[in-house]
Design a protein around this nucleic acid. Structure first.
Ligand SMILES: [Mn+2]
Ligand SMILES: [Mn+2]
Ligand SMILES: [Mn+2]
Ligand SMILES: [Mn+2]
Lengths: 221, 221
DNA sequence: GGCGATTTTTAGATTCGCCTAAATTGTCTT
DNA sequence: AAGACAATTTAGGCGAATCTAAAAATCGCC
């Protein structure tokens, strides 16, 4: 029951994200790319993680995360997202500045610290990017999220998360006055290029490109 | 100008504390004992730190911290103490619970984070144990501290820090209602065993042993 | 001033996390 | 079914941080 190292936690988190964002089977190369490391290093680490029982794998066949692995990954994700809330809500960081710091803070070991932080923040359910915060048992309870570009005209939704969280995209959203929590109504969908005419918060009307709509995650409102 | 590793930061901090709490010359064995490691490991690390210019040393002659090393050590100490304030003031930790968590948090790399935290905490000058918090330039501005047992009858002082921060001592102080910031007036000093009759916060009178008085650091009030 | 005890350094090994280069396995195409 | 090509693993090596055991230097005492 020894703690995972920082590196092991990062690998496990990457594997968790890859396996919940796609098929179950996670490839060596995908992990390497996500962690900006080399496939050979991933092979090494995969062996160690499977010896520790947090993933299972068959050589050349890719990786599956185990229940125990999922629990451990969700614990790191919980810490990451709570710290992001802290940075934005309490220390006035902008949502595009917090990720790198949270990448460090997520490895701090103290469950008491995290439960106190959770309490201090008022038990938030979502991080500043709209991603749900797992509870202490690793359970994520939140409405199913949809991609804006997949919806029909007249849908009324609320922005909860972003697929792209790069600065260019975040700056664009700032500029058009869209933020996590904004209400969006779909007025029309242009057949030609898939761009979407929307109304934000019952005030502002504008057209966004399909590319933008592809990166907005929303829930029914 | 590459960052020091966690291990290097811990060594440097230990060397800083040892050199400011005693003679300038810091011994290999003293460092090993403080960090609960072996002298052989210390010798190795000393070589690396001196190559990086944060300490200077001559083989077999002990170590001196350089100006650059002092600056870097004080930066880690600043972070440690600010996080301790955060844990006690905002997350309701008790002062005897915060050290181990701060040992982890002190290595988080972000000067913006620390300046925001400092602001959020209201620019505290002392940590929960009464130790002064260096400013962003590494300057410690605080009154000279004295040991209570070294003072004369009728002195009026304020408790700012503890030499012993073990649980037994902290519990005792709680029990007699003494805390950082308490005003202490010395009513009498018993010649026989050096115990001290005091008045706390103009209310409570009691006698403390010399052993206790030895561990109370105070400033003139 | 010399010698035993203590302190410090060196030598050699281990674990972790990473790398490059080479070998191996799997997949796809014809 | 056989290459060609891609994905993955293995082999071998490196730097960081640690350890034990042994050698070397310094200190302290007579
Ligand atoms: Mn993040
Ligand atoms: Mn986030
Ligand atoms: Mn501390
Ligand atoms: Mn402290």
């Amino acid at each position: 029951m020894i703690d995972l190292s920082f590196a092991e936690e990062n690998y496990l988190k990457a594997i968790y994200h890859l396996s919940s964002a796609g098929q179950n089977q996670v490839n060596t190369n995908a992990i390497a790319e996500r962690l900006e490391t080399k496939p050979a290093s991933v092979s090494d680490m995969i062996r160690k993680l499977s010896e520790k029982g947090v993933i299972s794998y068959v050589k050349y066949q890719g990786v599956n995360i185990t229940e125990d692995g999922k629990k451990k990954a969700l614990w790191v994700i919980r810490k990451h997202r709570l710290w992001e809330v802290f940075l934005v809500e309490k220390l006035n960081f902008h949502w595009d500045e917090v990720h790198d710091i949270a990448e460090q803070l997520e490895h701090i070991r103290s469950s008491l610290l995290i439960s106190r932080l959770d309490e201090f923040l008022g038990y938030p359910k979502f991080d500043p990017h709209g991603d749900p915060i797992p509870d202490a048992e690793g359970i994520i309870s939140s409405k199913p999220r949809m991609i804006l570009s997949g919806l029909n005209v007249k849908s009324k939704v609320k922005l909860v998360s972003l697929k792209d969280t790069g600065n260019a995209f975040l700056n664009y959203l700032d500029r058009i006055g869209m933020k996590i929590g904004s209400r969006i109504r779909i007025l029309d969908i242009i057949e030609f290029d898939g761009s979407v005419e929307i109304e934000i918060d019952n005030r502002k009307r504008l057209t966004i490109s399909k590319r933008v709509a592809d990166n907005l995650l929303v829930v029914a409102d």
